[in-house]
Every structure is written in structure tokens, then in C-alpha cells.
């Protein structure tokens, strides 16, 4: 048995150490969306503000938008709400809301009280669109390009840092592609 073989475990351990080190601090609960590169799933759901008015995936065409999944039952959604208002009003970002597994009246009161950053809000009381999108916990925010293709998903609260580092570059990139 040559001495060189005896170094094999050492090499393996060093490699493993590098991988483990890289894993520290990462959040193992963040999942990448399975829909990246695919169209937003087809749906027919009511508009939150206008009961009876049906919306479908066509609402995403024509502009790059953010799709924000929220509910009045979700405390973190409250936390990010001001950042969303800032994005919509100061940064001119088109945000479409997905009111997920919620109560219409409560949602409307919430938006009334806190402000409405959404160009329109899809009302998904049973969570069917949420399920098809692979939503597993609110808040989640998707970047959807002008053709209605999902490009990115952020799980968790959106704030200025998240916008600057993760969302803004993508939004700009897809806006350029569209024009």
C-alpha cells in the first residue's frame, strides 16, 4: 500500500470542510421556484376591489411586474408593506398583489388603512393560484417579465436592501429586453 493512498482521507476531509463552511449562514429553508423560466400558470380569479370582475394571466403582459403574495394573517407582510409602497410610488415599480387565503372584507380594510401599493390585486381565497405557483409561505415576491414568464422568486420580507441587491437588477434587465 503506497503512502500516497494514506493522504486520500485528508484530501476528502478538506474538500468536505470547504463545502460545510460555505453552508454556514445560508438559510436552508429558502427554496428556488420551480417555475423559473415558465409562464405564470393560467388562472381565473376575481379582482379584489371589483367583485365579479375576472382576471387572468393576461394581466402580466406588456410590462415587467412584481407579484407580491400577501395576507392579513401574515405579520411579516405588514412589515414589508411600507417598502412596497415606496417601490410602487417612488420607484415606479408595477406591483400586482395576490391576496392569498384571506377574507375579502378584511383585506380591503387593510389596504384602505395602510395604503395600496398594488396596481391590482388578485383575490385567491382558496389559494389555488398560490398552489400552482408553488407558494409555501407568505410573503413571497415574484419578478415576472413582460411576457408573463416567471423570472425570480424572493421568499420573505422585501425591503430596500432586497430591492437593491436582488430585484432591481432583474427588473431593469427584463425591462431592457422588453424594449
Amino acid at each position: 500500500m503506497k503512502r500516497v493512498f494514506l493522504f486520500a482521507p485528508l484530501v476528502l476531509v478538506v474538500v468536505l470542510g470547504i463545502v460545510l463552511f460555505a453552508g454556514i449562514g445560508k438559510d436552508p429553508t429558502r427554496l428556488e421556484s420551480a417555475l423559473i423560466g415558465k409562464q405564470v400558470p393560467a388562472f381565473t380569479l376575481e379582482d379584489l376591489d371589483k367583485p365579479g370582475k375576472q382576471l387572468d394571466a393576461g394581466v402580466f403582459r406588456g410590462q415587467v411586474s412584481l407579484l407580491n403574495v400577501w395576507g392579513t394573517w401574515c405579520p411579516a407582510c405588514r412589515d414589508e408593506h411600507d417598502a412596497l409602497l415606496w417601490l410602487a410610488q417612488e420607484q415606479g415599480v408595477r406591483i400586482i398583489g395576490l391576496n392569498y387565503k384571506d377574507n375579502r372584507e378584511e383585506a380591503l380594510v387593510w389596504l384602505d388603512r395602510l395604503g395600496d401599493p398594488y396596481e391590482l390585486t388578485i383575490y385567491d381565497p382558496r389559494g389555488t393560484l398560490g398552489f400552482d405557483l408553488g407558494v409555501y409561505g407568505a410573503p413571497e415576491t415574484y419578478v415576472i417579465d413582460a411576457n408573463g414568464v416567471v423570472r425570480y422568486r424572493h421568499v420573505g420580507v422585501v425591503n430596500e436592501k432586497v430591492w437593491k441587491e436582488d430585484l432591481e437588477p432583474l427588473v431593469n434587465q427584463y425591462r431592457e429586453d422588453a424594449s
Binding site: 503506497k2 503512502r3 494514506l6 482521507p9 485528508l10 478538506v14
Partner: peptide, 13 residues
């Protein structure tokens, strides 16, 4: 790493 290094250098072959 230090134990395996010791092993690699000092284990009988």
C-alpha cells in the same frame, strides 16, 4: 485535519 495528516505521515505502510 491534523490527525489525518499525522496518519498520512506516520502510519506504517
Amino acid at each position: 485535519v491534523s490527525s489525518l495528516a499525522l496518519y498520512a505521515f506516520r502510519a506504517p505502510v
